[in-house]
Nucleic acid binder design. Structure first.
Length: 798
DNA sequence: TGCCTCTCTCTTTTT
DNA sequence: GAGAGAGGCA
C-alpha cells in the first residue's frame, strides 16, 4: 500500500540526470542485459514501436484483442528501465479498478518490485481523490472529506429540493442527480451551466439547486463521485503552483481506454500534460479504440480520441491491428459490421490464425425458444468437454438476463451473472458502513441519518425533523444535535431514552477505535446496535444471505490496516467477491463484456428496437446508432472461436408481446463469413412470417444461399410456426390468423398437474405445486424453496 | 408505525 | 406485467 504523502519527492535540482539505479531494480537488470531486453523480444513490430516511442505525445489505436495491456505495461517497464523516469514519476490512469489491478499485476510480473512503487497508477477517481485530499482546503474541503455514493447523493438532493420548495413529484431527486452528474462530467460548475439547460429543471431553479447542493456538500465536508474529478480540475486550474507541482512530478502520462474519457477527464489530463518550463516534452501516451467507445451516454466523448493529433500536434499515431484473439471469420464479420460507421479513425484487424468456424445467425420464434436453443447448445458444448468458464451470454439489456437464468436453473446449468448490484451497494452493507462511518466520523450526517432508526428504535420522521432543525440552528452535526435534544423535553421520553442509549453506544465504540482491531470493532458494533439481530429475526428469504454478506464485510476488513483506510477503499474500490471454483457460464450485458474474451459467445436479442435500442436511436439519432453498432462490434469481438447470434420474432416488451424485426446489424454482417442456421424446429418459420407481415420492414440485403433457402422454407411452413410456442394468443397484437388459432388451442390446454399436488424434481427434490400456468408450474420445494419449473421436468410424487 | 394501494417506469453503469 | 417508491389511512 503506497501513500502519496510519504513518497520520495521527485523535485531534484537536476532533472535531466538519470536517477541512480537501485541495486537489483529493473533498470539495473535491464541495463545489465543491455541491447535487447527480453520484454521487447516478445512484441510484434507495431507493439514494439508503441513501447519504444516513449517521448512526446503518442496515440496508440489498439483494436480488440491486439495486446493493448501488454503494450501499456511494457511501456511502463521500458520507461523505467531506460532510466527516463522512476515509478512514482509516471501517472497511469484507467477507468476501472479491475483494469488498474490487472496492470499492477502485469507490471509486477514484468518488472518485479518496481510495480509496488507505482503510487500513481489507478482510476481517474482514485487518483483524483488522492490529489484532492492533499490540497482539500483549496477547494473548501478538509482532507478527510467523505465520498458520497449515489444513495447519499439522492438523499441529500431530496433535502435540497425540500429546502427550495420544489415539488419532488414533478422534479424527482433522481433526475436532478442525473443532471448534475452530467454537468460535472462536462466540467461545468453551477455558474457555467448553460442557462437554458439549468432552467429546464425545477421551474427554472436548476442552477440554484445545483449551487445549493454544492454548498451543502461543502458544509458536510463531502464530495460526490463527480466532484472527485471536477473539484480536482478546479484545483489545478485555479492554483498554478499546485498544477506546476504535478506537472513536474508526472514526467510520463499514460491513459487507458482513452475513447471513454469524458470532458472533465480530458481537461484534467490536458492540464497535466501541458508543456511546462520544467518539462518541455509533453510525454503523454493515450491508448484506446474508437470502435469500442460505448459510454457516450454517460458523458464519454469519442471526439477526444478523434482529435488527439489536434490537441497534441506532431503526435505519433500507432495502430495495433494484429489480432491474437479471434478466428478469421469472426474478425471479418466484426470488421465488416463496424465499417458501416462513419467518423472512424479506421483500423482493419487481421490475424495469422485459422479462419475457424463462421459466426452463426439463427432466428427463433420468441425469447423462450431463444433461451431453450441456447441452453441446449450449451449443454452440448458441455458434453463435448468445453469448460463453461469459456462460455458467455452477452445481452443488450438486463431484463434479458432473467429468462436465461430461469432456463439455466431448469436445466441445472451453473451460471453467474456479472454486473448486477455491487456488493457495497446492498442495503445491509451500506447500513453497516454507515455505522462505521458514524463511529469513525461523528460529523457524518448522512451516515447517521441512514441508521439512526435502523433497526427500528421508535425514532421516526418527526424526530429526524427535530434533529435537523436543531442541527441547523446551532450549526452542529446531526449526531451532536441528537445528543443535545436528548437532554431537553422536546423528544418524547421513550425517544429520549433511545437517543441517549444510542449516543452512549457510539461513545463507547468510538473510544475503542485505536484499541480494538477494526474488524472486531465492526462486529461488535453490528452486534450491540441490534443490527445483526434485526436480520436474524427477519423471516424473509434473503435475510440469511444478508447476514452472510455482513460476515463477508467484516472478513474483508482484515486486509486493511485501519478503519479509515477501509472506509476510503470501500467507496472507491470494493467489489463483490468472486465466487467458488465451480465452472459457470457467464451472463452479462455487452457493456460489462468489454475487455473480456470467451471461446464461445452467445449474442441473443438482435432485433430492431432492442438492439439497436430504440431509445438510443430516438435520443441520439445517428450517433446513437453508431454507438449501438460499436456495441455489436464489441460483442462479436469477444469471441475467440465461435460467435452465435440470435433474433426472436416475438418478444415481450413492457409486458406486451410484440412482433419484432431482425436487427439491421444482421444485414451488415458479410454474407461470406456468416452462416445462417436453419433451425430444426419449425418455429424458425416464424421469423419470415414476421418479416413479410411487418408494416415497416426494411429491405434485406441478405443473399446467402442459406438465407434464401430459409426464406423458401418459410413460405412453405411459416403458417404453422406458432405450434411450438407457449404464450397466449390474447397477448399478441398482430400476426397471421392461423397462428392465433393454434395458440389459442395450445394456451387453453390444461396441465395434467393441479395446485396442491405433490411432485418430484430431479434437481430440487420433493415439493408442492402452488401454481399452474400453461406448462409451467410454480412449486414450493421442501428443500430448494419456491421455483418455477417446466411441467416436463417433474413427476407426480409417489 | 406499518400496511395497503396507487402510480410510474421499464438501456447501457463506473466511480 | 412487475417491481419500486410514495402517500394515505388505521
Amino acid at each position: 500500500m503506497s501513500d502519496p504523502f510519504e513518497l520520495p519527492d521527485p523535485d531534484e535540482p537536476d532533472f535531466t540526470r538519470a536517477p541512480a539505479p537501485r541495486a537489483g531494480g529493473i533498470a539495473a537488470r535491464a541495463r545489465a542485459a543491455m541491447g535487447q531486453p527480453r520484454y521487447l523480444e516478445v512484441l510484434n513490430p507495431e507493439q514494439r514501436a508503441a513501447v519504444e516511442a516513449v517521448d512526446g505525445p503518442v496515440l496508440v489505436l489498439a483494436g480488440a484483442g491486439t495486446g493493448k495491456t501488454r503494450v501499456l505495461t511494457t511501456r511502463i517497464a521500458h520507461t523505467i528501465a531506460t532510466g527516463r523516469a522512476r515509478a512514482h514519476e509516471i501517472l497511469s490512469v484507467t477507468f476501472t479498478n479491475k483494469a488498474a489491478r490487472e496492470m499492477k499485476e502485469r507490471i509486477g510480473a514484468l518488472a518485479g518490485e518496481v510495480a509496488e512503487g507505482m503510487p500513481w497508477l489507478g482510476t481517474f477517481h482514485s487518483i483524483g481523490t488522492k490529489i484532492l485530499r492533499r490540497h482539500a482546503e483549496l477547494v473548501g474541503l478538509k482532507s478527510n472529506f467523505t465520498i458520497l455514493d449515489m444513495d447519499d447523493q439522492i438523499r441529500l438532493l431530496k433535502q435540497v429540493l425540500q429546502a427550495e420548495n420544489v415539488d419532488e413529484k414533478r422534479w424527482p431527486a433522481r433526475q436532478l442527480s442525473i443532471l448534475i452528474d452530467g454537468w460535472k462530467n462536462r466540467g461545468l460548475e453551477p455558474e457555467r451551466v448553460p442557462a437554458g439547460e439549468a432552467e429546464a429543471f425545477g421551474n427554472g431553479k436548476g442552477r440554484r439547486l445545483y449551487a445549493f447542493y454544492q454548498e451543502r456538500l461543502k458544509a458536510l465536508n463531502a464530495a460526490d463521485f463527480g466532484d472527485l474529478l471536477l473539484e480536482g480540475l478546479r484545483l489545478l486550474r485555479d492554483n498554478p503552483d499546485v498544477l506546476a507541482e504535478y506537472q513536474r512530478r508526472f514526467r510520463y502520462i499514460l491513459v487507458d481506454e482513452y475513447q471513454d474519457t469524458n470532458t472533465v477527464q480530458y481537461l484534467w489530463l490536458r492540464l497535466l500534460a501541458q508543456a511546462s518550463p520544467d518539462r518541455p516534452q509533453r510525454n503523454i501516451c493515450c491508448v484506446g479504440d474508437d470502435d469500442q467507445a460505448i459510454y457516450g451516454w454517460r458523458g464519454a466523448d469519442v471526439d477526444n480520441i478523434l482529435r488527439f493529433d489536434k490537441d497534441f500536434p506532431g503526435a505519433t499515431v500507432i495502430r495495433l491491428e494484429r489480432n491474437y484473439r479471434s478466428t478469421g471469420h469472426i474478425l471479418a464479420a466484426a470488421s465488416h459490421l463496424i465499417a458501416h460507421n462513419e467518423g472512424r479513425l479506421g483500423k482493419t484487424l487481421f490475424t495469422d490464425g485459422v479462419d475457424g468456424e463462421k459466426p452463426t445467425v439463427q432466428g427463433v420464434w420468441d425469447s423462450e425458444e431463444e433461451t431453450r436453443v441456447v441452453g441446449e447448445d450449451i449443454e452440448q458444448l458441455q458434453r463435448r468437454g468445453q469448460s463453461l468458464e469459456d462460455v458467455a451470454i452477452l445481452v443488450r439489456a438486463t431484463f434479458q438476463m432473467r429468462e436465461f437464468e430461469e432456463r439455466f436453473v431448469t436445466l441445472g446449468v451453473p451460471y453467474r451473472v456479472i454486473g448486477g448490484p455491487k456488493f457495497y451497494e446492498r442495503a445491509e452493507i451500506r447500513d453497516a458502513l454507515a455505522y462505521m462511518r458514524c463511529v469513525a466520523q461523528p460529523t457524518d450526517d448522512l451516515a447517521f441519518e441512514r441508521i439512526f432508526n435502523t433497526p427500528k428504535r421508535g425514532l421516526g420522521d418527526a424526530a429526524l425533523q427535530l434533529m435537523h432543525e436543531h442541527s441547523r440552528r446551532e450549526r452542529i452535526p446531526l449526531m451532536l444535535a441528537a445528543r443535545a435534544l436528548s437532554e431537553t423535553e422536546e423528544l418524547k421520553p421513550k425517544q429520549r431514552q433511545c437517543v441517549r442509549a444510542l449516543m452512549a453506544d457510539f461513545d463507547r465504540w468510538s473510544s475503542l477505535i485505536d484499541v480494538k482491531p477494526h474488524n472486531e470493532l465492526a462486529e461488535m458494533v453490528l452486534e450491540e446496535s441490534g443490527y445483526t439481530d434485526m436480520w436474524q429475526k427477519d423471516r424473509s428469504a434473503d435475510a440469511a444471505g444478508r447476514l452472510e454478506n455482513l460476515k463477508e464485510l467484516v472478513r474483508s476488513m482484515e486486509q486493511f490496516p485501519d478503519l479509515a483506510s477501509f472506509l476510503e477503499h470501500i467507496s472507491l474500490v470494493m467489489e463483490r467477491d468472486t465466487d467458488s471454483g465451480e465452472q459457470k457460464v457467464s451472463i452479462m450485458t455487452l457493456h460489462a463484456a468489454k475487455g473480456l474474451e470467451f471461446d464461445t459467445v452467445y449474442l441473443p436479442g438482435w432485433e430492431e428496437g432492442l438492439f439497436p435500442h430504440q431509445r438510443a436511436l430516438d435520443e441520439q439519432g445517428r450517433a446513437g446508432l453508431e454507438e449501438e453498432r460499436r456495441l455489436a462490434y464489441v460483442g462479436v469481438t469477444r469471441a475467440r472461436k465461435q460467435a452465435k447470434i440470435y433474433f426472436a420474432t416475438n418478444r415481450r416488451i413492457r409486458g406486451m408481446w410484440q412482433t419484432t424485426i431482425p436487427s439491421r446489424f444482421l444485414d451488415e454482417l458479410p454474407a461470406d463469413h456468416v452462416d445462417v442456421v436453419e433451425a430444426a424446429s419449425a418455429s424458425y418459420g416464424g421469423y419470415a412470417a414476421s418479416r413479410f407481415n411487418s408494416i415497416d420492414s426494411f429491405a434485406s440485403t441478405y443473399n446467402t444461399p442459406g438465407w434464401q433457402r430459409a426464406q423458401q422454407r418459410n413460405a412453405a411452413t411459416g403458417a404453422r410456426s406458432g405450434a411450438t410456442s407457449g404464450f397466449g394468443a390474447s397477448q399478441r397484437r398482430s400476426g397471421p390468423q392461423t397462428i392465433e388459432g393454434e395458440l389459442v388451442a395450445k394456451a387453453s390446454a390444461t396441465s395434467s398437474f393441479q395446485t396442491g399436488a405433490r411432485v418430484f424434481h430431479v434437481k430440487f427434490g420433493n415439493g408442492s405445486i402452488v401454481g399452474v400456468e400453461g406448462n409451467k408450474l410454480t412449486v414450493d420445494f421442501d428443500k430448494a424453496g419456491r421455483k418455477m419449473v417446466l411441467e416436463s421436468f417433474v413427476q407426480k410424487a409417489g
